[in-house]
C-alpha cells in the first residue's frame, strides 16, 4: 500500500518536472541558431564515426562506418571562424539528398580567396599578400598541385589566434600543431611528399634547450620569411634557408618582435625600461631583454670604479 502511494507521488513529481522542463526545452530550442539546426541534417551522419540508414535492398536499417576524412568535429566547427555558416553555404545543396549523387564527388571546393579576396571586411588581413607570399613558399613551389590553404587552415576547424588570443603560449601551441599535423604525422606527410617525414626532434637536435624553444616559439619564426606588412608570415622557406643564427632572436633587435610578438608589440609599447618588453609576459630571451635602467646603472658604476682606480694609480705614482 505504502509502495503504491510512493509510486503515485513519484508519477505526480515526474509530471510536474516534465511540464516545467518542456518550457525550458522549448526556450533552448529557440535559442539554437538557425545554421546549427540546419547543419544538424548533415552532422547527424558526418558528426559521427558511424551512420545508419534504411536500406531498401535489404529492407532494414544498416549501420556503416563514416569515411574518417568526412567526419566533422562539431565542437571544433562551432568554435571555428566559420561557425556561423551552414554546410550548404560552401557545399552543394544537392548533398541534402541521400544517397548523395555520385557526381558531387567532383564538386570543386571553394578556395579561401573566393570569399576573402575582396571586401573591406578582410582588408586588414591583407589576403592578397598572404596569397603572393604563399605562392613564393616551398609548399606552393614544391607541391603546387596538391597544396592549398586548407592543408594548414582546415575550414571546419581553423580559428585565428595571433590577433585574438592574449595568451602567447596558446598561440604557439595552436600554430605549431598546424605544422606538426603533417610534419609529425607520416600519413599526412606522405600524402603530399611521397617520402617518409624526417623526425622533427632529430632534425632540431642542434637547438639548445630544444623543449623550451619548441614551447616558446612557433616553427614559422625560423622557417618563414618575415614580411613587414603581414602579421603572420606565409612564405615558408626551404629548410636550408631557415634561421639558424641564435642572435637573430637573442639580440636587442630580436626577430621575435617582427614575428611572434608583432601584434603584442604594436599593442603594448616598451614598458618599465625593458627592451622588447612584449617578450617579457611569459618568457625571457637572453640577449633580447635588456633593461635600460640596469644598463645605465651598470655603466655608471663601472665608470666610477674605473675612475676610482685611475685616480688611485695617479696618486700612487705622485706619492711614490
Amino acid at each position: 500500500m505504502m509502495i503504491k502511494g510512493m509510486r503515485i507521488q513519484a508519477l505526480i513529481w515526474m509530471f510536474f518536472f516534465m511540464i516545467a522542463n518542456a518550457g525550458l526545452f522549448a526556450q533552448q530550442t529557440d535559442s539554437i541558431p538557425e545554421n546549427v539546426k540546419e547543419n544538424q541534417k548533415c552532422l547527424k551522419c558526418h558528426g559521427n564515426k558511424y551512420y545508419s540508414y534504411y536500406n531498401d535492398w535489404v529492407e532494414g536499417d544498416v549501420r556503416e562506418r563514416m569515411n574518417p576524412f568526412y567526419v566533422i568535429d562539431s565542437a571544433e566547427y562551432y568554435n571555428s571562424n566559420h561557425k556561423t555558416f551552414t554546410c550548404i553555404d560552401c557545399h552543394s545543396y544537392e548533398y541534402e539528398e541521400f544517397p548523395h549523387p555520385g557526381y558531387l564527388r567532383m564538386e570543386p571546393s571553394y578556395s579561401c580567396m573566393d570569399c576573402h579576396g575582396f571586401g573591406d571586411e578582410w582588408a586588414k588581413f591583407n589576403f592578397e599578400e598572404i596569397q603572393s607570399e604563399y605562392e613564393k613558399s616551398i609548399h606552393s613551389q614544391k607541391h603546387n598541385e596538391t597544396f592549398s590553404c586548407w592543408m594548414c587552415h582546415n575550414p571546419h576547424e581553423y580559428k585565428i589566434s595571433a590577433r585574438t588570443e592574449e595568451n602567447i603560449k596558446e598561440v604557439i601551441a595552436y600554430d605549431n600543431a598546424i605544422c606538426l599535423n603533417c610534419h609529425a604525422d607520416i600519413d599526412e606527410f606522405m600524402f603530399i611528399a611521397e617520402r617518409e617525414n624526417p623526425n622533427v626532434l632529430e632534425t632540431h637536435d642542434w637547438l639548445p634547450n630544444q623543449a623550451l624553444h619548441f614551447k616558446s616559439v612557433r616553427c614559422i619564426e625560423c622557417h618563414a620569411e618575415q614580411s613587414d606588412t603581414l602579421l603572420v608570415a606565409h612564405n615558408i622557406l626551404p629548410k636550408e634557408k631557415a634561421v639558424k643564427k641564435c642572435v637573430e632572436c637573442h639580440s636587442d633587435n630580436s626577430l621575435l618582435m617582427a614575428s611572434l610578438y608583432r601584434y603584442q608589440a604594436k599593442e603594448e609599447r616598451n614598458k618599465a625600461g625593458f627592451f622588447n618588453s612584449a617578450l617579457l609576459g611569459e618568457y625571457y630571451v637572453v640577449g633580447a631583454n635588456r633593461n635600460y635602467y640596469l644598463n645605465l646603472i651598470s655603466i655608471v658604476l663601472f665608470g666610477l670604479v674605473v675612475l676610482g682606480i685611475g685616480v688611485h694609480i695617479v696618486l700612487r705614482i705622485i706619492n711614490k
Binding site: P208, K245, C246, V247, E248, H250, S251, D252, N253, V286, G287, R290
Partner: peptide
C-alpha cells in the same frame, strides 16, 4: 657576449658563447 649580442658586431658566436 650573450647579454649584449648583436648580429652586426658579433663579439663571439652566440651558440659558441652559450
Amino acid at each position: 657576449s650573450m647579454q649584449y649580442s648583436n648580429p652586426d658586431f658579433p663579439f663571439m658566436r652566440f651558440d659558441l658563447a652559450v
